[in-house]
């Protein structure tokens, strides 16, 4: 098992390296430079000043030299400084030790994604199981409709509609941000409640599409499990239907779900860009949007490295769980 993990970890290194080479090339191939914001269409800009700026950021060097110097820093976990005019270290933008841990960008995005993952699982599994146990029942048909609607609804549109309903018309939930204006004056419990209050809509929106998809997977994998011989055997033994479903069928049906969960991590991370923009949430998605728009190479690269490591880690964990859950894989 440990050997297997080590092997997996080692194969991750070339993958990450490949990801960085590719993304470095792509972002540099895109027209425009980080200095454009300062220099393009600016009447006060002289050609000398423009050159000075490009030298300042090392943009005058050939691409492979730029990549190697970036790589040299990255192996020491130095992400460099942002090219935007604030020139703050990339790592501070992502993980600012100067602010409470809950306010750091990476943390904000992780919390929302973990919560939405939990919400997806806690809704999708029961829905999927129930529709599989009673296929083509009224409930199954209703959820099928829900799933199609869920897939077809653009998240940004649904988000705005829900804001109008819950925040404007009913006045129950805050509209945007992760804290109220008067947050600093609240006690600890009230502060946590305030944060939770702000998270309800974003978590629901980011989970919405996932619930639809995941419940479908759950349903089909459960249907398949139920058709297996061991389920027939279990029933023939005279076991209670509850035991048959939850102990014999469900456990097996959960296996493919683990793989799908591991694969859905990149989707969740890129989904953050959309809902963080709408809800004004200061997380990684918002940061990547700004960085890409400003051609802020060090920030884009830093975020890509972090999210590809997260994705690979997610896949690794999924494989580990798979091995733990399924003895057939362990012994191979």
């Amino acid at each position: 098992m440990i050997l297997y993990m080590l092997k997996r970890l080692l194969t991750m290194i070339p993958v990450v390296l490949g990801v960085t080479v590719l993304s470095f090339c792509i972002i540099h191939l895109a027209p425009g430079k980080p200095t454009d914001k300062l220099s393009e269409l600016n009447p006060k800009m002289t050609p000398e000043a423009r050159q000075r700026l490009e030298q300042y950021y090392g943009l005058d060097k050939p691409l492979h030299v730029q990549y190697l110097s970036w790589l040299k820093r990255i192996v020491r976990f130095d992400f460099g400084n942002s090219f935007s005019t604030d020139s703050r270290p990339v790592i501070v933008k992502i993980w600012d030790r100067g602010v409470p841990i809950l306010d750091r960008r990476l943390m904000v995005t992780l919390i929302i994604n973990v919560l939405s993952m939990l919400l997806i699982l806690s809704c999708a599994i029961p829905i999927g199981v129930y529709s599989a146990v009673k296929p083509y029942s009224f409930f199954d048909r209703i959820t099928t409709v829900f799933v199609f609607v869920g897939f077809a609804t653009p998240a940004f549109w649904l988000a705005l509609l829900l804001i109008i309903l819950f925040s404007i018309n009913l006045g129950w939930l805050p509209i945007s941000g992760i804290k109220s204006i008067g947050y600093d004056g609240l006690g600890f419990t009230a502060q946590m409640f305030d944060r939770a209050h702000h998270l309800i809509l974003p978590v629901f929106i980011s989970a919405f599409g996932g619930i639809a998809g995941m419940s479908r997977y759950m349903r089909s994998s459960m249907l398949e499990a139920i058709r297996n011989d061991y389920v027939t055997t279990a029933r023939a033994k005279g076991l209670a239907e509850k035991t048959v479903i939850f102990k014999h069928a469900l456990r097996n049906a959960l296996l493919p779900l683990i793989t799908i969960l591991g694969l859905s991590i990149p989707g969740l991370i890129s989904g953050s860009i959309i809902f963080e923009q709408i809800f004004g949430i200061p997380g990684m998605g918002q940061l990547s949007f700004q960085a890409i728009m400003g051609r802020d190479y060090p920030v884009v690269m830093g975020l890509l490295v972090i999210s590809s490591i997260l994705t690979l880690a997610g896949n690794l964990v999924a494989d580990m769980c798979y091995a733990l859950a399924d003895p057939r894989i362990r012994t191979k």
């Binding site: 705005l160 925040s167 404007i168 509209i175 945007s176 809800f279 004004g280 949007f289």
Partner: peptide, 20 residues
């Protein structure tokens, strides 16, 4: 004088409507 950053114009208008 407080400046709130709301990247989406639609959301900002809703914030205005709610008095925030």
């Amino acid at each position: 004088y407080i400046i709130r950053f709301i990247p989406d114009q639609g959301t900002m208008f809703l914030e205005l409507q709610s008095g925030a």
